[in-house]
Nucleic acid binder design. Structure first.
Lengths: 154, 154
DNA sequence: GAAAATGTGGGTAATTGTGGGGATTTGTGA
DNA sequence: TCACAAATCCCCACAATTACCCACATTTTC
């Protein structure tokens, strides 16, 4: 449940429908497929969860009361963002809302990238350039990661 | 019941009527649709609840005694004041009172954003700018959230 | 290589969204 | 109390979107 794996190339048809690869579907329980949640990602991509996993994410947010401060409300809003419920049709596809298609700049060719409990949906070209690094940059990123990791480890 | 999900683009017609998207309606029991409550939001937006959920919000307020202070009384008054009971018409629309339209600056294009037990109603432009953050600001917000969360964890 | 399962595309019917006419109710001022 | 204007409600009509269905290409499995 917490270890989705896989990278898949798929096509979006003219109606904005995306068929979920069977190898991805197989990693979720049958029942979950009728209540999936898509949302904007922080980068120019979308994120796909089961409803259950999405609500679990939301739990964290709802632990803090709205009355608290404007910043809290804004933060929650930004996170909750464009979440949309959807279910797969008889051909194992989901219909992605227009607004989200635009947000992520999705064309015909897209890539699904599973990781943890979420699946990122990228336009293929953007995905390729996102993953395109030279070794210098990679080692810089690793260093940054290491520094950020320390404080919370204490 | 506690997990409304969805972001919807809708139009307000010239009469101030807003049709509720079917995917939102489907998340409430049929019976609730005839007793919805709209109110001013803390930001420049409106908030929509079922009557049941609204009453639950009121509970929070009533937990604090009126004797406490003038500010308490004023807050309660203002918060309670804007609340309007409404029901959907045969075309699945609600009629939003003029005063509230003005308060939230609602034009033709609005966005409904569901989260938890409430639905926020925003003018589309305001909504877009509310959600538009750069990464610096976002990390500040996240930090703020993190700090607020701690106390309740103890 | 054949059969099964999956991916892709599109047509059509049903549902939903949007707008507006006009009757009824409510509020206001003479 | 009446007349008038404004707001609200109840209809209907059309446009847009979505759900459902089928066909066929492609890939996988045996």
């Amino acid at each position: 449940m917490t270890g989705l794996i896989g990278e898949f190339s798929c096509k979006l048809d003219g109606k904005g429908r995306l068929s979920l690869p069977s190898k991805l579907r197989a990693q979720w329980p049958e029942s979950a497929l009728h209540t999936l949640v898509v949302n904007r990602g922080f980068e120019k991509c979308l994120v796909l969860y089961t409803k259950e996993d999405w609500l679990a994410e939301m739990e964290k947010l709802n632990a803090v009361d709205d009355f608290m401060s404007p910043e809290i409300r804004r933060f929650k809003r930004i996170f909750t963002n464009g979440a949309n419920l959807m279910s797969i049709d008889s051909a194992q596809r989901i219909l992605i809302p227009k607004k989200l298609l635009e947000y992520a700049g999705l064309g015909t060719d897209v890539v699904l990238s599973a990781n943890g409990r979420k699946v990122e949906i990228w336009d293929e070209k953007l995905y390729d350039s996102e993953l395109n690094v030279d070794s210098n940059e990679l080692s810089q990123l690793a260093q940054h990661f290491h520094q950020q990791r320390k404080p919370s480890g204490e």
